[in-house]
Amino acid sequence: MAAACLVLGLGLIGGAVTGSWLLPDGGESGTSGAFAAAGSLWHSVPVDQLFPPRVEGQGAGPGGADRTWTRVAVAPDSGCADAFDPLLRKALAPVGCQRLLRATYTDATQSYVTTVGLLFTKGDSAAMAALRTRFKNESLDSRTDLMPRPYAAKNTVAAGFGSEQRASWTVSVLTDAPVVVYAVSGWADGRTVDEPEPAAKAMASGATTAVAQAGLGQEARGLADRVERALRKTVDSATEQPS
């Protein structure tokens, strides 16, 4: 049993746990069962299922261009202490931090790098709904003092991807799962960004900033959306009842 408990952590560090599973403790049915199942996915599915080694983004780039992202690193599963700017960490505190999973990707040209994260919270459905409402009403997902931090991995194209290199980001609070999905993007050459922009602003029609023109909003939003879709598909599969 002790060895089984180490499977995910070791796999995350190595970035390859395909086929390595931990058995869930049990299941429920209905909506509450799906919510609970989603909250346990961080230890019950392979990391390659949550963060595929290659992600296809049909129509995800500027002007509807296709995108392909390749995973360059997977962070060890961890807590949230160093993953968010202090004010974002404070805003997320009401739902707690059960586990944080992160991976960093690069585009096909290795011009951009993007960290995508899945924060598995301790909150129930009501707490997640309240947090989502607050994010929407107070525009917390567009404030530059509430940003997720990237995961920079040594000896990869993302080695220089630090807080000063953040260009665009997106944060999505789910209400049908105790999960916050986010992504933060930047240039792969390590250049600093004086004025990062939330993905929604960078993707707006007519946006002319360097971040917008480079499509870094699409990088963040495109990856976050596809990781969220993969998460939902995994939840659906985990809660399917035998016929």
Score class of each variant (00 low, 15 high):
165 Q>L: 06
58 Q>G: 12
76 P>F: 07
34 A>T: 06
89 R>C: 10
189 D>Y: 00
135 F>R: 03
175 T>Y: 01
29 S>V: 13
186 G>K: 01
165 Q>E: 09
10 L>H: 13
187 W>N: 00
149 R>P: 09
66 D>L: 12
16 A>M: 14
150 P>E: 11
92 L>C: 00
82 D>S: 08
177 A>G: 05
49 Q>F: 10
205 S>D: 15
169 W>K: 06
127 A>P: 03
165 Q>M: 10
233 K>T: 15
165 Q>K: 10
119 L>S: 02
190 G>Y: 00
35 F>Y: 14
63 G>F: 05
157 V>H: 00
138 E>W: 03
145 D>V: 06
95 V>W: 04
191 R>G: 07
23 L>E: 12
126 A>T: 12
11 G>F: 05
128 M>L: 09
21 W>R: 06
138 E>L: 08
94 P>H: 06
102 R>K: 14
243 S>V: 15
62 P>R: 11
59 G>L: 03
165 Q>Y: 10
164 E>V: 14
172 S>F: 10
188 A>I: 02
34 A>W: 02
242 P>H: 04
9 G>W: 12
170 T>M: 11
138 E>T: 04
201 K>C: 01
192 T>M: 10
191 R>L: 02
6 L>Y: 15
220 A>M: 00
110 Q>Y: 03
25 D>H: 14
91 A>V: 00
6 L>Q: 14
59 G>D: 05
121 T>I: 02
210 A>I: 00
40 S>W: 10
67 R>Q: 11
203 M>R: 10
140 L>P: 01
182 Y>N: 13
232 R>Y: 14
62 P>S: 11
63 G>A: 06
131 L>E: 02
189 D>R: 03
45 V>A: 12
53 P>S: 06
29 S>C: 12
199 A>F: 01
60 A>R: 03
129 A>S: 05
144 T>V: 11
203 M>K: 08
70 T>I: 12
165 Q>W: 07
159 A>P: 00
67 R>T: 10
201 K>G: 03
7 V>K: 15
134 R>G: 09
27 G>F: 15
73 A>E: 04
132 R>A: 01
56 E>P: 14
126 A>M: 08
37 A>L: 09
